[in-house]
């Protein structure tokens, strides 16, 4: 397109479509200030930041911030945690959401459907702060409901706040719990979009329920699945900060198993004030996210252009 063409377009719109330019002005200003300025500010990752000189006045320090992060051994650990957790979430959430959507679509009673769907969406409605309270209510060593049930059955207590080994399972469960309502509505909408004639003619041909799911429903929701998958893979290096922070918080005993990039950056920023290193990690994460999103979209466009995000 070129800069010249862009300039021509802008000057045309400035003469003829001043009102439209005015309409996008608030968003453009907002994004310039809150998104593009911080992008420029990401140079702080290559500086040794001090408060008095500010972002642009502080002296350069080359790749020291990155070196410090990678040498600490933390880089590999938090990256690995982030990716593995997200991969587990993608698999379990999609399986459960698709299952729930297929079953919901088969349920004929509208009231039952509405109430159950509403109940499933309720966890999505509350903040992770409240989920943190709920988790404590369930898991607390002294008073937790689950430990109560375990002791009443004569079994040993489940000590999750000092022993990190079971947290992956807890996170997978809670993320599925919080997301199942939302995801099943998305997939249900996709199933509703499949023509009922296809199902009817399959029934006439003697197909049973499982065959219909296998050969009609699953292929029918594939485009939706692919779009959600690209979005999820594009964010695979981005940890769900709210969840990890609210459930683990500042419990150092659990860091090794539960620290993701986002919580690590947050802590380095707010508790140790390591501006240089935490911005280096943030930049490292942004670059990884950007690359994965572009690459996955490229692959999808190769396979089936209609499913591509852009």
């Amino acid at each position: 397109m070129g800069v010249k063409r862009l300039f021509q377009n802008l000057s045309y719109d400035f003469r003829r479509n001043r009102a439209l330019l005015l309409m996008i002005l608030p968003v453009v200003i907002y994004l310039l200030v809150f998104s593009y300025v911080p992008m420029a500010g990401a140079v702080i990752a290559f500086k040794s930041y001090n408060f008095n000189d500010g972002i642009f006045g502080s002296p350069w320090c080359g790749l020291n911030n990155f070196r410090f992060f990678f040498m600490s051994g933390k880089a590999w650990q938090v990256t690995k945690n982030t990716v593995l957790y997200n991969a587990a979430f993608i698999v379990t959430q999609n399986v459960l959401e698709i299952t729930a959507a297929i079953f919901l679509s088969e349920i004929a009673k509208p009231r039952f459907k509405k109430i159950t769907q509403g109940a499933m969406f309720l966890p999505n409605f509350i903040s992770w702060v409240v989920v943190g309270a709920i988790a404590y209510n369930l898991l607390s060593y002294d008073f937790g409901f689950i430990n109560n049930v375990l002791t009443s059955m004569g079994m040993e207590k489940w000590d999750v706040y000092t022993d990190a080994s079971d947290w992956p399972g807890i996170f997978v469960f809670l993320s599925a719990w919080k997301h199942i309502g939302y995801g099943s509505i998305v997939y249900l909408a996709a199933i509703m979009g499949i023509s009922s004639e296809i199902y009817e003619s399959a029934s006439l041909d003697g197909a049973n329920e499982w065959q219909k799911i296998r050969y009609i429903t699953l292929p029918g929701i594939k485009p939706t699945f692919v779009v959600l998958l690209i979005l999820a893979i594009g964010n695979i290096f981005r940890g769900n900060f709210d969840m990890f922070y609210q459930l683990v918080g500042t419990n150092g005993l659990l860091y090794n198993a539960t620290d993701v990039i986002d919580t690590y950056v947050f802590r380095s920023l707010l508790t140790t004030y390591e501006f240089g290193m935490s911005s280096a990690i943030g930049l490292y994460q942004s670059v990884l996210c950007c690359i994965t999103l572009v690459v996955t979209n490229l692959i999808i466009r190769r396979i089936n252009p209609e499913n591509a995000l852009y």
Partner: peptide, 25 residues
């Protein structure tokens, strides 16, 4: 009829692809 819509759509969309991270913000 908004000729620079392509440019501004990219301008908006790009912030989804890349961010400066928590610290500069």
């Amino acid at each position: 009829d908004f000729k620079s819509r392509g440019f501004f759509t990219m301008f908006v969309f790009f912030t989804m692809l890349f961010s400066g991270g928590l610290v500069p913000w």
